[in-house]
Nucleic acid binder design. Sequence first.
DNA 1: TCCAATTAATCAGACGTCTGACGATTAAGC
DNA 2: GCTTAATCGTCAGACGTCTGATTAATTGGA
Lengths: 162, 162
Amino acid sequence: MTKDKKLANPLRGLEDRPGFLIRRAHQISQSVFIEECAKLDITATQFGVLWVLARAGELDQISIARLLGFDRSTTGLVVKLLEDRNLIVRSPDKNDRRRHVLRLTKAGEDLRRRAEPLVDRVRMRLDAVFTPSEAKTFSGLLDKFTRSFDETARVPRRRPSS
Amino acid sequence: MTKDKKLANPLRGLEDRPGFLIRRAHQISQSVFIEECAKLDITATQFGVLWVLARAGELDQISIARLLGFDRSTTGLVVKLLEDRNLIVRSPDKNDRRRHVLRLTKAGEDLRRRAEPLVDRVRMRLDAVFTPSEAKTFSGLLDKFTRSFDETARVPRRRPSS
DNA sequence: TCCAATTAATCAGACGTCTGACGATTAAGC
DNA sequence: GCTTAATCGTCAGACGTCTGATTAATTGGA
């Protein structure tokens, strides 16, 4: 290969590695989320915790981590931020004193509800670059990809049975 | 919706948001990269810089950032780590004193070359969960997705013309 | 019953990522 | 030429993420 060819495309061979494009896709989707939800000052990760708590009523940190596929430490830090903002409360579990059970406060539930339409907008903006058929295929492949690694990944994820 | 149904699947409605699955896919691919390249002590981000420098010969930080879609600050920090390990050298640009031109050292080029087969293994492991046809479709959709946002994203990316 | 393995949670440390600000330098318009 | 705008790089601060270690509590097996 000549030096000129190198200069012509310094990315040939990197661009088609899935990891590289996945990283970029993640960066983009995070950026769109932050942009849409700026007025609520909430991140995608934080919203995930609010969401799952709204659905489940109450959970301990480890359960949240497993459902969302977050690392234990990550979950602990995110939960701390939400607790500092009084969006969730933590109370010791009487049956198992290692656990702290989390639940949404009224403020947390209000914020989650207000975030809902904004998060829908994020989804719409992300899907908008595809035809409906492509969007479906993309989601399906992402699901297959992530599902294939759920059990063997360093940070495993246990999806609900339903 | 009954409370029982909530408990049955606390993730319904979150799982099919593309951003959520993209995050998980990113987490997985990073994890596989780290696992394969553990003995070289290099991350995907760092490898990207080594790669693009190997291709281009020499570049300043901003050019690297634009080619890879990294933030300026991120690039600065990654470059610093590589420089501390003597994998790249930085020299002031005589024509433009704002710039510092980066190039690989011998150690940097050696590391990049040794990383090559490991990075190929990462790609193989990621693609292995798909049929060849699915892998191609997935790559194509990821490319379309990222390309659609390259210009409007907060962190823009300028792909090489070739 | 008692010891060992497991589990929940926290912490320090590291890297990646972005924002907003700043200083230094160059380029552009008048 | 001079003023203004744009650009390169850095820094502090914040959040997300993972590792490895530690502490406290529970569980399971001999």
